[in-house]
Amino acid sequence: MTLTLRPAIADDLNALDALEQRCFQSDRLSRRSFRHWIRAQHSGLIVAEEDGQLLGYALVLLQQGTRLARLYSIAVDPDGRGRQLGRALMQAAEDYAHSQRRLYLRLEVRRDNERAIRLYQQLGYQHFDEMPDYYEDHEDALRFQKRLHYLPQNAEQLQVPWVQQSTPFTCGPACLQMAMAALGDYRPTVTEELLLWREATTIFMTAGHGGCHPLGLALAARQRGLNAEVWCNQRGPLFVDSVRDSAKKAVIETLHDHFVAQAKAQQLPVHYREFGADQIDQAIAAGRIVLVMISTWRLDGRKAPHWVAVSGSDDECFYIHDPDPGEEQVPLDCQYVPISRRLFGQMHRYGQAKLKTAVVLGG
């Protein structure tokens, strides 16, 4: 009998559901979830079949706009164990991620699953993080990753704690809290997040509450004892082209003028030119944290300004901490996210005016 590895189809639904019940006592994928992943784009559900019997599966998710893939779940039928099926499914998962030009494949595994951990280590996966109380029964998860494109690794990763924004409009304050936690003895709170937003916001934006001005973020950081400097390729009021109402434009312009005056009074360094890849590398090498405004178009299809924290770099990628998991992601997918340098350059601009701005922070 020959083992076949192939993409899952709708006719596999009953067998997948039954396999899940046999393999796991908790943290099971539902029948509805399997139906979704069979149909979904940006994912690969691979099944192992022998003589018409489904013996295992591997589910790989692709994170849009990045070079990252995640092994979301893998299962081998108890009757099929001891026959290298897990190894075969892992190879199929890597082949799928590689075919989609993903740079890393990441996974989570129970701390007490020694057999699976040995397999991942044998296949070249490196332990890089852990998540306490991750599973339904409160067991911890260990995080592993493997680089699928074997290039020299010279990443300089910064130890940047990840902070999730608590509102749709506080990405900037959440990123600033990441920097404060990385650069000093600081514990982020929701109250501080909202207070930071009050200090740094433009009040209005494309819709709803406004986002944070780079000068506003830098001034708030300076107020809390950090060294800060701003890079911006525009001198005039920012974001005014994102609103139509003249009264709202006037408010944005008033706040911009206030931030400029405060920056001048406090001798805050402001560089009116682009902050490119070389400058990001230099800042990271110096142990500084870089907050960058990006357009979310290549992440979620929406043209919205969004602050992220750069958490590392190497010859091929920049790594970001994204404070917004969105609707389909989990926090694990938003930390040390590898984005190719070319794509990052395309994301690091916003609006018709192609605004490029960054806030560089040090202790």
Rank of each mutant, 00 (worst) to 15 (best):
H209L: 14
W307V: 08
A304W: 10
F204P: 02
R235H: 07
A221K: 00
L215M: 14
E253P: 06
G211M: 15
I289E: 00
C317P: 02
A286F: 04
A200W: 10
P269Y: 02
Q262P: 01
H271M: 00
W307G: 14
G301E: 14
L226G: 02
F318Q: 13
I294E: 06
A250Q: 08
V251W: 05
L291Q: 06
I203W: 10
T296E: 05
P269Q: 04
F275R: 12
K303T: 13
R224A: 01
S242M: 15
K264W: 10
K303N: 14
R235E: 01
G210H: 11
H306G: 15
A263D: 10
M293H: 07
Q282P: 12
A221P: 02
R244I: 05
P237M: 09
P214G: 06
G210Y: 13
Y272A: 04
W307F: 12
F275G: 12
R224E: 01
L215V: 07
N233A: 00
H306N: 13
L217T: 03
D281E: 08
Q266W: 03
L219M: 05
D241R: 06
F204Q: 00
C232D: 08
C212P: 08
V290A: 00
V230D: 06
V251M: 03
A200D: 10
L299N: 05
A221D: 00
L217S: 06
K303A: 11
A218C: 12
L226P: 00
Y319S: 09
A277Q: 14
L195Q: 15
P305C: 02
A207D: 01
H256N: 05
K249L: 03
R224T: 02
D245Q: 01
A304I: 15
M205A: 14
C232K: 04
L217F: 00
L238V: 07
A265S: 12
V292R: 11
V290N: 01
Q279W: 11
R224H: 03
L217R: 04
Y272K: 12
H256G: 02
P237I: 14
P237C: 06
A261C: 07
P214A: 04
F318P: 09
V310F: 07
R302P: 08
Y319M: 10
H256T: 04
C232V: 05
A247H: 01
F204A: 05
Q267D: 13
W297Y: 10
I284M: 09
D257T: 10
V270L: 08
G216T: 14
E253W: 07
N227A: 07
I252K: 03
A247M: 00
A283K: 09
G312M: 15
R288W: 02
R235D: 01
R288T: 00
A220D: 04
S295V: 05
G216Q: 09
D300L: 05
R235T: 03
F318V: 13
F204R: 02
Q234F: 13
I284C: 10
G208Q: 09
W231K: 00
G236C: 13
G225M: 10
T201K: 01
K248T: 08
A309F: 06
Y272I: 04
L217A: 06
V310T: 07
V308R: 10
G276V: 14
A261P: 03
F239K: 01
G211L: 15
A265G: 03
Q234D: 04
S295K: 07
A247Y: 02
A263G: 06
I284N: 07
V292T: 13
D300A: 05
G210M: 10
H306W: 11
A220R: 07
